[in-house]
């Protein structure tokens, strides 16, 4: 069917069937809600466990990030109908977004490197901001050896 206003555009009613549309919307809403609830559960788990900054903590956070990306996929692909567009058009949106891979890695690693350098060369920074600084001499805090973590 030609578009009434733009004759070079054909309308593709991806949602012509009312019943199928309703099902799709309900399904997507449920998926988004369930993922959000799981995310909240994991966020509260992080709070409840009070893990030290170790691999387990990183793992839970990694799962939360992946779940968020899944939510983003459903919003863009179903709600914004990007999944129903022509492949070439999808690529003009998705390919530039690949820049984020470099963008995130470069800046996060840079921040991390800055922290490591400061901890190595700026003892005051290390002692005043670390979670358990060697506070009082008369307290039974074990003093961690300075330098490497």
């Amino acid at each position: 069917m030609q578009h009434p206003a733009f004759e070079e555009v054909t309308i593709h009613h991806h949602t012509a069937d009312d019943k199928a549309f309703r099902k799709k919307v309900i399904r997507t809403t449920l998926i988004l809600s369930v993922i959000t609830v799981i995310e909240l559960g994991l966020g509260l788990l992080l709070y409840a466990l009070q893990l030290p900054d170790d691999l387990r903590r990183l793992l839970i956070k990694g799962v939360i990030i992946i779940l968020s990306l899944a939510k983003a996929f459903y919003i863009v692909s179903i709600f914004m109908h990007l999944g129903d567009e022509i492949r070439n058009m999808i690529m003009t949106i998705v390919v530039p977004l690949m820049l984020f891979i470099w963008f995130i890695l470069a800046f996060i690693l840079d921040g991390n490197s800055y922290k490591n350098l400061r901890n190595k060369f700026d003892q005051h920074f290390k002692e005043s901001t670390s979670e358990h600084p060697p506070v009082d001499k008369n307290k039974t805090h074990e003093i961690k050896p300075g330098g490497k973590e």
């Binding site: 963008f103 995130i104 800046f107 996060i108 840079d110 921040g111 991390n112 800055y114 922290k115 400061r118 901890n119 920074f125 290390k126 901001t129 670390s130 979670e131």
Partner: peptide
């Protein structure tokens, strides 16, 4: 860019 900048600063902190 905003969120990555935030992440960068956050990674540069011990706490």
């Amino acid at each position: 860019a905003f969120l990555i900048s935030y992440g960068s600063i956050r990674f540069s902190q011990n706490f």
